[in-house]
Every structure is written in structure tokens, then in C-alpha cells.
Nucleic acid binder design. Structure first.
Lengths: 361, 361
DNA sequence: TCCTGTTGCGCAAACGTTAGCACATTTTTC
DNA sequence: GAAAAATGTGCTAACGTTTGCGCAACAGGA
């Protein structure tokens, strides 16, 4: 190698060493255009030996591609519960993109404290080739900006808000179906009276859909969920615990709980334990998201599993498709909405035998 | 704005519009060199209005600065427990760097599955200005490579392995002290017989130091921890649970548990609950890391709080110092090791009254 | 009036790469 | 054996910045 102040190797170095022009080296390495097999081999092995890599800045100046994707995390990502869920998604996406030689930069739609958003910067400075938006929504003005910039982007995880334009790409799980599956299972266990633990946060669309699905399932068995059967929390363990504790005098008539969030479900489990209410003996509990924690609880929590792997895959493919189209100067492919199927994972809190069973076990 | 296929605004556009040269625009915007106050103002407001931002690639080609920092996460980051801890650190660091106009790219020392590491790529392609290494160690060969590349980098969180070269920068919490504080507290509560739950993973240095500190504290009270008092797990809730369950016949003589990891501590709490052993009545429990989950457990878990805020701050300042020095072509500042103080957070599992008390409550 | 200094700005080279074009050489085709 | 086509390579102009140098204009001092 070389001393610590050494200049990085450039195409020119290789060209001089091989006695050819810079273009020839470039073409040999990129495999573009006609080059004799002999020189190609020779140049490649020289580059290999020298540990040459293209200077990303120089290259992108010409190709307009930087090899980096921005992932826009939800503004509340600093919060425990949110990052618990999104980390898995983030990791899955990262793995896929890495295979395609993309690096990942994290972005936020707006920093609550500084008010500054690095998202806009990333776009205008051309530091990314595309965006995966995992934020429930972008400010209309910001959305308009991103769109006007021509930067490819897709929404992942959050369902499109009502009235969202049809020309946007969304990839998200079927929340209504998830709620349906959970509630249907409870009904099939013979549970007749269910109460719900949901969120009053501003992401509520997801939660409303889950409730809607649950109602549809119960209706099939002649059951229902009334306004008085619904408790609210803020998606934290604490809030689930408190909600159930506050509700304890009215708990008598219920034989099941449907929590639209795993953390709140876990809080509820704690409350039941403290109140001496047996799970699943007296009350069956189902959560939502199937976060990593759930299988490790006592009793292990049944939960609606989000199709994160599939979601990651579809998201990346979609985005890469948009990027490729743009690179080739083609028309932007028509927007699509991909709705993925969640799955119910039954564990002890519903009366299943073994601990931590399910996809991830 | 402009149509979606519009070219981004460049210095040239502004120059043409203002009737000056490109250099003048550049200098007005950067504030470098002499420019009349009048034109400076005029150019600035024009740029503002047009929403101009420098093209990062073009700029970095000349300045050799890309405005991006690579964060090297531990290879086991995909695992729940690990990301639970590092996320907080990552977020804190991100917030600091964002204020300094840096973006963050995630890197891995080596992908276990593909064998490929994007870290090397990031360095040779010059996609980052510096690295924050949160991995317990780098392969000697990789370390040599990074060092030889002249890329500024610092280690954060993990203590330097024995024999680590002194010319490397490390910022990490005092594990020995953490173990000491936890054990001393148990002794001060009148607990006379403690067993430990530690890890047998290859990060063990941290864990060995924690044990060492615990032993020192107990020795001050004439107590000790023998080999038979030590259980091993893999830093998961499950493993903590199983370790204690397997140990249940021998549990009689003990009045306290020191777990060198919060997740294992939580698993132990579950086991105690199942075995009908009262916490903190019969056994006091202290964990380590003070992860977000701990305060929410029942009983709330006492834990050694890692100085993550301070660590983030020191890490970023150190790295930015190195980058700045390099930019100015100065000598690399001498390496430093910053050892930070952890703090014990006492909650219910040790007999504290309120739930979720502590720094984060 | 001349000299010296300062101020404000433009020119042009550089950064490392890609790609269109031209040209020389080889191969194919009739 | 000549024309046409294919092949391999170099030249050169980009891409959007920064920056050293030079030059004109102007000010102040003698």
C-alpha cells in the first residue's frame, strides 16, 4: 500500500501504467463499448491488484447516479416503539439494496427540534438516487417539492392517506385484513366479548383500518365492538398498562383483548398479571406487528405478523425500477399500489402451547 | 418550480441571470475571498429564491469533502438486542452530525452472508469523510486498510481490545466502574450472595470488565463471586430466562442477581415470576445498559445507565476534529482514549418505589 | 502626476470520470 | 483484390464546482 497521505488511485494511474488511454481503462472496467478481450483482462487485473475503485463523486457528476438511496424514517423514529418496528424493515431493505451496490443514507422529513430537514438537502444536492419514504406522510409542500424534483420515490409501510393522489407509489400491508384475521381467531376460540386497545396518535389511519377489519370479522359471528369497548394509548408499553389498569373495574365482562400494537399489548399483559387475571385462561390477547419482543414475553404474545420481508422486496424492486427508467430517460412507469397480506401468529397468549412459535421462532 | 424532467439549478444559471461570472457566484455563496457586499447580497437572495443548492458531487470532487459520515454498526446489528441499544446511540450521533451538516451512511464491517463489506467500498470510492466504528473490532486486515487510506475514524462504545494500538481513538464507557456500581449497590442493600448472568459471546471483553468491577465492589464488603455463581447466556431475553430456569434447583442460597445485559435480566425476571420468587422481596436484580425497555418492565428493572449522550458528543467532536485537521492538511492529532462514567439507575427490581424512575423517566 | 495598495471580479485550470466522434487497423463480403 | 463493415483505441468535450492568478478600477500619499 502507501503512506497515509497518499493520493487515491485514479484511472489515469492505471492508464499510464498500462500504456493506454484513460478511456480505454474506463471502458475495460465498465465493460461498455468494444474493447479487445486481451486489454480488458490486463486492465482488470491491474485494477484489481491496485485495489482501484471509481471515485464516486467524479463518476456521478457524469452519470447522474450516486449509488445511494435515502430512507426517510418516521419523525417519531427516536421513540423506542417506532424504531423497534422500523429497524427490521430498514435492515431488510438495506440487505437488498446492498446486493445491488447501493448505500443507504438516513433522512428525516423534518426534525421536530431544529425544524430543519435534511431530506430537502439530500434531494437538491443530488446525494441520493431515490427515496424510500417510511413516514406516514410528507407535508404537502415537501411532497410537491420532491415530486417536482423528479427524484424517484416510493412510500413503504404506511397506507396511503385518504385522498392521496393516485400517481404515487405505495407498498403497505393490508391493515383491514390484519384486524380481521386477529378478531376472527378470537371468535373461533369461542371468545364472545372483545375489547380493543388502539392509538390516538396521528398515524391513526392504520389503526382505524385494523379496527374496521376486526369489526367485520366479529360481525360474521354476530359480535361487535362498541365505542365503550375501545381504550386508547400512545403505542407504548406504559400506556397499554395504564389503559388496562384504569379500565379494571369494567374488565369483568370481557374474555379477550385485541391490541393494535404489540407494545400496548405487552403493557396490557403486565396489567393482567398484576390484577391476577389469567392469560389466556380468562382473557385471550392478540397484538399487532409481531415485533421481536413479542415472542419472548411471558406468556408469548400472539400477534399479527407484518410481511416485512415481502414489503422490503417489493419496495426495493419498485424503486430500482423507477431509478432505472429515469436513468434511461424513459417515461416514468405508472404508479402502483401494492397491498400485502399480513399473517396471524398464534402463541401462548391465545392458548397456543409452545413458546415463541411462529415465523421467526 | 419546473417540470419533473427539469435540470437542477447550477451556479451557471445564477451567473447568467445575474450577469456575473460563475466564480463570483461561488464566492458570494461561500463567503470566501473578497466580494462586494452589494453583489454578495444580490447573489444570495437570487440563490435563495431559486432554491439553489450545490451539487455535492461536483463540489466534493474539488474539495475532497463529501459531507457524509459512515457509521459502522456491529455485524450482529440485525439482532434485536443489539439494535435496541445501538439505535439510541445512532440517533444521538445523527442529531449532532446533522447540526453540522453531515449526512449519515450506514456501513457494516462484513456481511455475514454475502461476505461482502460495503465499508471498504465506502472508503475507496470516497463516499464518506470519516467513520464512526461501533463494531467491537475490525479484522486486522480491514483495520490496516482503513488506516492506510488516511480516512479519519474513531471507535465508539466498545472498549479497546487488549493489545490494541495506542494510536487509535476510542470513546467508551467504563465497564469496570459500571459493574462496581451495580454490585456495590447490592451490597449496600444488605445482599450477601449474588449470582451473575453474563455473556459468552465474542464481545466478552465488556462483560469481563463488568464482572471484574463487580468483584472489586463485593470484595470491599468481604463478599465474592465464584465460578459457580456465574451463568451464561447470549444476550437475549430467552437465554436469560433459560439460564435461570436451568439453575432453579441451586437458586436457594442467593439473594441477588447481577445481569450484565438488560435483555438477559428481563428473561431472568420472567423466570423468577414463573418460579414464584419475589423481586425485589427475595431477590434484587440489576441489569446493564439501561435500554428503553427496562423502565417499562414489571417490576421496573434497575440498570447501569450507559452515558450515551456524552459518548455521542465526544465521538462526534473527536471525529470532526480529525476531519478538519486532515482538510487543512495538518498533522493528525494524537490519538486519545475517552473513558466515560456510567451511572446506576435504581428502580423497583432493587426495591425502589416508583416505576420507571431514572434519567429517562 | 506617478507610485503603491486595495478592492472586485473574470479567466482558466483542475478534480476524476464518461461518451461521442474520428481514425487506423483488421476482417468480411462480393 | 477492392469495397464495405467491424473492431479497437485515442482525443476531446463535457459534468458543476473551487481557486490561483491576473487585471482593471479606484483610492490614498507623496
Amino acid at each position: 500500500m502507501c503512506a497515509s497521505d497518499c493520493k487515491p488511485i485514479t484511472l489515469k494511474h492505471i492508464a499510464d501504467l498500462a500504456g493506454v488511454s484513460v478511456s480505454t481503462v474506463s471502458r475495460s472496467l465498465n465493460g461498455t463499448s468494444r474493447i479487445s478481450e486481451a486489454t480488458r483482462q490486463r486492465i482488470r487485473s491491474m485494477a484489481e491488484e491496485l485495489g482501484f475503485e471509481f471515485n464516486a463523486s467524479a463518476r456521478s457528476l457524469i452519470t447522474k447516479q450516486v449509488g445511494t438511496i435515502g430512507v426517510v424514517l418516521p419523525p417519531s423514529y427516536e421513540e423506542f416503539g417506532v424504531n423497534l418496528y422500523f429497524n427490521t424493515l430498514f435492515n431488510a431493505i438495506r440487505a437488498i439494496l446492498e446486493r445491488n451496490d447501493y448505500d443507504l443514507i438516513v433522512a428525516f422529513p423534518a426534525n421536530r427540534f431544529t425544524g430543519q430537514d435534511n431530506l430537502r438537502r439530500l434531494v437538491t444536492r443530488r446525494k441520493v438516487d431515490g427515496l424510500i419514504v417510511m413516514s406516514p406522510r410528507l407535508e404537502p409542500e415537501l411532497l410537491e417539492f420532491v415530486r417536482g424534483s423528479g427524484m424517484p420515490f416510493v412510500f413503504s409501510h404506511y397506507p396511503p392517506p385518504e385522498g392521496a393522489e393516485a400517481e404515487l407509489d405505495f407498498i403497505y400491508p393490508d391493515n383491514e385484513l390484519g384486524g380481521y384475521l386477529a378478531a376472527r381467531h378470537l371468535a373461533s376460540l369461542g371468545r364472545r366479548r372483545t375489547f380493543c386497545l388502539t392509538s390516538d396518535a396521528d398515524y391513526e389511519l392504520e389503526y382505524r383500518l385494523r379496527l374496521q377489519g376486526a369489526r367485520r370479522a366479529l360481525a360474521e359471528s354476530g359480535l361487535s365492538i362498541g365505542a365503550e369497548d375501545i381504550l386508547y394509548g400512545d403505542m407504548s408499553i406504559e400506556s397499554g398498562y395504564r389503559a388496562v389498569m384504569n379500565f379494571r373495574r369494567s374488565l369483568g365482562g370481557y374474555d379477550s383483548l385485541l391490541a393494535f400494537d404489540d407494545l400496548m399489548a405487552i403493557g396490557a399483559l403486565q396489567a393482567f398479571a398484576e390484577l391476577g387475571i389469567a392469560v389466556p385462561g380468562e382473557v385471550s390477547v392478540v397484538g399487532y406487528d409481531d415485533c421481536e419482543l413479542s415472542g419472548a414475553m411471558r406468556p408469548a404474545l400472539s400477534s399479527v405478523h407484518q410481511p416485512r420481508e415481502e414489503m422490503s422486496l417489493v419496495t426495493c424492486e419498485r424503486l430500482m425500477g423507477l431509478i432505472e427508467a429515469r436513468r434511461q430517460g424513459l417515461e416514468r412507469p405508472p404508479a402502483r399500489r401494492s397491498v400485502l397480506r399480513p399473517e396471524l401468529v398464534v402463541r401462548e397468549s391465545c392458548g397456543a402451547r409452545s413458546r415463541g412459535a411462529g415465523p421467526r421462532a
